[in-house]
């Protein structure tokens, strides 16, 4: 474990979190999915504010999330005293929206639209999102502070410059910024940090024996119909770190919305997807 590297990532993230809080105060919220990255981000927010999470924590709930995500959420909300906002696109769910109607359509309705509704309702101008550059080639092109217009569009081919540790500030009617405090972290950094700090993680990440006799674990968490576990025998954080050192399978291989063939991630993200 490269401790100096982790300390530099940690200090960099805390710096971004405090900058964002200074600029946006009560118009700032954290968007979380209760996976390892969001949980680590919440931990870093607690570090920045000495144990407190002074901003609302928004969970975009498609209602299709893997069951243990909900119980893990409830546990953290209690332990860390979080101000939870659950955002659901109730209207689309009533219409019966689900992945069989098309993944692109479903992600847009139950994630992007639900987020739009939450932003309109609470008036947020800035959102922390725990995406990382090494997750996906499209996310690799993100800025730390990334503006979105009123339609949530990300103009990926016309992003403003971002220099050193200076970030753009945007205060225009209808627009908001996504703030990415973890952008420079790699998957392995997250796990080494989780180990170092003893951060709680969802048990879905650890391998279990499936009915067919094979061992599997989730490497990335999402909606039940669109997320598949990987074959793995890593039952502890140490074994996960060991596995990541040698794997050649991408992190989000089990996530259906990521396939690059049809530029689906780019299209989703340009519409406001995380």
């Amino acid at each position: 474990m490269d401790l100096a590297h982790l300390e530099s990532l940690e200090a960099g993230s805390i710096y971004i979190i405090r900058e964002a809080y200074y600029k946006y105060r009560d118009r700032l919220a954290a968007l979380v999915s209760w996976g390892k990255d969001s949980t680590t981000m919440l931990y870093l927010i607690r570090e920045a504010f000495f144990g407190e999470v002074p901003i609302p924590v928004v969970h975009i709930d498609t209602s299709f999330k893997l069951k243990p995500i909900y119980s893990f959420r409830d546990r953290l909300v209690k332990e860390w005293n979080l101000k939870l906002i659950v955002a659901k696109n109730e209207e689309a769910l009533k219409r019966g929206m689900n992945p069989s109607m098309g993944r692109f359509k479903c992600c847009t309705a139950l994630k992007t639209e639900a987020l739009k509704q939450a932003i309109a309702k609470y008036g947020f101008k800035a959102l922390f999102v725990a995406i990382r550059r090494d997750e996906h080639a499209i996310r690799a092109k993100e800025r730390v502070v990334s503006p979105r217009d009123s339609e949530f569009r990300w103009s990926i081919t016309d992003q403003p410059p971002e220099l050193w540790d200076q970030f753009n500030e945007l205060d225009e009617e209808g627009k908001h910024v996504r703030i990415h405090p973890m952008l420079g972290w790699r998957e392995i950094d997250i796990w080494e940090f989780i180990k170092l700090k003893g951060i709680p993680v969802n048990p879905l990440y650890f391998a279990k024996k499936w009915p067919d006799g094979k061992w599997r674990r989730y490497r990335s968490l999402g909606c039940e119909p669109c997320t598949v576990p990987i074959e793995s025998e890593a039952k502890t954080i140490d074994e996960i770190i060991e596995e990541l050192r040698s794997t050649k399978v991408p992190e989000r291989a089990g996530r259906a919305q990521d396939k690059e063939m049809s530029y689906m991630m780019q299209k989703l993200r340009s519409l406001g997807y995380m």
């Binding site: 499209i138 092109k141 990926i156």
Partner: peptide
């Protein structure tokens, strides 16, 4: 990775790999 980048055979946005 962008559609515009592959079809236009040029890099548009800065990116990061490890």
């Amino acid at each position: 990775a962008l559609e515009e980048e592959r079809k236009g055979e040029m890099t548009i946005e800065t990116t990061r790999t490890f």
